[in-house]
Write a protein that binds this DNA or RNA. Structure first.
Length: 266
DNA sequence: ATGGCCCCACTTTGGGGA
């Protein structure tokens, strides 16, 4: 184990369609922990072998056709939890959490895929807000553990105007609604830190570009994939990297990886 | 963010995404 721990979040938009892209990126970036979203696969059909061949333990929480999250890790996971607490009737596979032992102690890491919430005016938006309420409650419970905690994932929230190339185009979208952004700020009010914003105030840092209308070529992107850190994790954060180049490859996901680099020195 | 896409499923049409 090196003196740093790299934890990444990556919405891969289908593990079968993205097997080569995901493996190529893992080979070059070699994160210690990769949080995947939108695996779009049931657990039994998840192609574990190519990832295990790269040295990763694989834990999945999938469903048929859409959604689904996974945790890939070089060290074995402990205490794996699936499903976000707070609604036993919620069947959508959007949350998996595990604890990892590292030389400095432990890191608790979650891969989460927040509901999109579009279109407004349907039941999808209240579902998003209810999911955010449940996430806030669970995050509060986890914060009380006073551990290094990384809530990594596709939040489907544009936190601020500087997180979009064209913020005016998103005013009627669930990703940029005041209620969505207020919920994100409530997570921050719990003491969670938006990792990227703790290292830079720069605009033009995006994690998603639509497949349509040449959005990537125009750099018409948004920042919706986030690493939210407990104080114990934020204290160890060295830098945050967005692997934008993978969006320009063959058969890419519409998202790119966001990587946090943490110090393991005591 | 619409002119232009992409993935998935009991596939050839519709649901879902952002």
């Amino acid at each position: 184990m090196s003196a740093t721990l790299e934890i990444a979040t990556f919405n891969i938009n289908g593990v079968k369609a993205r097997l080569e892209a995901a493996c190529d990126w893992l080979k070059e970036a070699a994160p210690d922990i990769a949080c995947f979203q939108e695996i779009k696969s049931v657990d039994e059909a998840f192609p574990r072998e190519p990832f295990e061949a790269l040295g990763y333990h694989v834990e999945t929480h999938g469903q048929k056709g859409f959604n689904g999250v996974a945790l890939l890790s070089k060290m074995p996971p402990e205490d794996v939890r699936r499903r976000l607490p707070g609604d036993e009737a919620d069947e959508q596979a959007r949350y998996i959490e595990a604890v990892y032992s590292v030389p400095s102690g432990v890191f608790r890491v979650a891969s989460l895929y927040l509901p999109n919430g579009n279109p407004l005016g349907t039941e999808k938006f209240p579902y998003k807000l209810a999911w955010l309420d449940r996430l806030e409650a669970h995050a509060a419970d986890l914060m009380a553990l006073e551990e290094p905690l990384v809530l990594a994932g596709d939040y489907n929230i544009i936190p601020e105007p500087r997180d979009a190339k064209r913020p005016e185009a998103w005013t009627q979208d669930a990703l940029f609604q005041p209620e969505s952004r207020a919920a994100f700020r409530r997570l921050e009010a719990l003491g969670l830190t938006d990792a990227l914003r703790s290292v830079t105030d720069a605009e033009g840092l995006y994690s998603f570009w639509d497949y349509q209308a040449g959005a990537f070529q125009k750099d018409n992107g948004i920042r919706i994939d986030h690493l939210m850190l407990s104080p114990e994790a934020a204290d160890r954060l060295q830098t945050v990297r967005i692997d934008k180049h993978v969006r320009g490859r063959e058969k890419p996901s519409d998202h790119v990886p966001v990587v946090g680099v943490f110090s393991l020195e005591s």
